[in-house]
Structures are given as structure tokens and as C-alpha cells.
Amino acid sequence: MNRYSDIICILARVLAVGLFFTSGVDKVFNYHDNLTLMAENHVPAFFLPLVILLEVGGGLAIAFGFLTRFTSVFMAIFSIAAGFLFYQGYSHAHLMVWLKNASCAAGFILLALNGPGRLSLDYLLRHKFQAQTT
């Protein structure tokens, strides 16, 4: 990879998780409203802290390229599951949001397959430990 590709990988990781990170932070500040929404969709309340952890913590992890492949798999599963749980019905708006979730899942699957790039904590840690073992 050249230097431009490395920088584009950082930009892509940040763009991939921007929606999730801001959504997770919003859930922290509007916790009760989100519990109500979850109850209306028959989703148990104990999932909300896990969702916040995934959106905020997972978002930061992917943005910095830490445990990227692992976290991307969970983000992809979460995107599809959220689509099925919260965007049921046949309205145009629900279809658009469901497709947005499917598109996000596709991006996370590609990130899981291709990795975070050279400018990432994953790359740095992998090469540091390889140097120590040789």
C-alpha cells in the first residue's frame, strides 16, 4: 500500500463508525428514551448498555484500528439485527433505513476481511510482537 491508501484507510474507518459512535453517545444522554423505544420493539432493556458499549467502544476501536476484524464482525451482525428489530414494516422510510443498515454491514464485512491498513494499532501491535518473537 502507498501512503495515500494508508490515509484513505483511516478516513474509511472513521467514516464507517461515525454514525454508530454518535448514536451511542446519544443513547447515553437519552438513556430513558432509548429504553422506551426498545420496550416498544420488545427488546429487553439489558441490551442497551451492550449496544452503547458496541457503538461507542467498538466505534473508537475501529477508528483507531484496534481489534478491527473482531469488532467489525460484531458491528455487521448488530447492523443487520437492528434493522430487523427496529425497522419492520413496509414503509419507504423503513426500507431506506434497513438498506442503510445492510450497507453498513457490508462495509464492516469488507473491513473484517481486509483489515484496518498499516496506520492502525492492529498493525503496530502485530509488528511489535513479531519483532519480539524473532
Rank of each mutant, 00 (worst) to 15 (best):
P49H: 14
H127M: 12
F46Y: 15
F64C: 10
L119E: 10
P116E: 07
I8T: 12
V73A: 00
L19H: 12
I80Q: 08
V56P: 00
Y31V: 07
Y31A: 11
V28C: 03
M1N: 14
S120G: 08
T36M: 03
I62R: 04
H92M: 15
L35Q: 04
K27V: 08
G115D: 14
F47I: 01
Q130N: 15
A131P: 05
G24E: 07
Q130T: 09
A39Y: 06
F47E: 00
V17K: 01
L111V: 12
G24Y: 05
N101A: 04
Q132A: 11
G57L: 11
S79L: 09
F21T: 00
S79G: 08
V43Y: 03
L85P: 09
G89Q: 02
F20S: 03
A12N: 13
E40N: 10
R118Q: 09
F47H: 08
L19V: 06
L113R: 13
G117M: 07
G83C: 09
Y4S: 14
G58N: 03
A16K: 01
N2P: 02
W98S: 13
A82W: 05
G115R: 08
I8C: 03
C9M: 12
A63N: 10
L67P: 03
Q88V: 03
Q130G: 04
L124Y: 15
L35G: 00
F70H: 08
N101D: 03
L124G: 02
F84G: 05
F108R: 01
G117T: 06
Q130C: 06
Q132I: 03
F84E: 08
F129G: 01
Y31C: 10
G115A: 13
N2M: 09
S23P: 10
E55F: 05
L37H: 02
A112C: 06
N34Y: 02
F21K: 03
A131G: 07
I10P: 04
Q88I: 09
Q88C: 05
V25M: 02
A102C: 08
L125M: 11
G57A: 05
A102F: 13
G83Y: 06
L11G: 11
R126H: 08
I109E: 00
G59A: 04
Y87I: 04
I8Q: 15
F64P: 09
D26P: 03
T22G: 12
F20K: 01
F129E: 09
R118F: 02
S23T: 13
L110I: 13
L99K: 14
L15I: 13
F129D: 04
F20Y: 05
G18F: 00
L99H: 10
H42M: 07
T133R: 08
C104K: 10
L121D: 09
A82G: 06
F20G: 02
S91Y: 11
C9T: 08
G117I: 08
D6P: 07
N41R: 14
M75I: 06
V17W: 03
F86E: 00
V43M: 10
G83D: 03
K100Y: 01
G57E: 11
C9I: 00
Y31W: 10
A106D: 08
G89D: 05
F29A: 10
F21G: 04
L113F: 07
A93H: 13
M1W: 09
T68A: 11
T71Y: 00
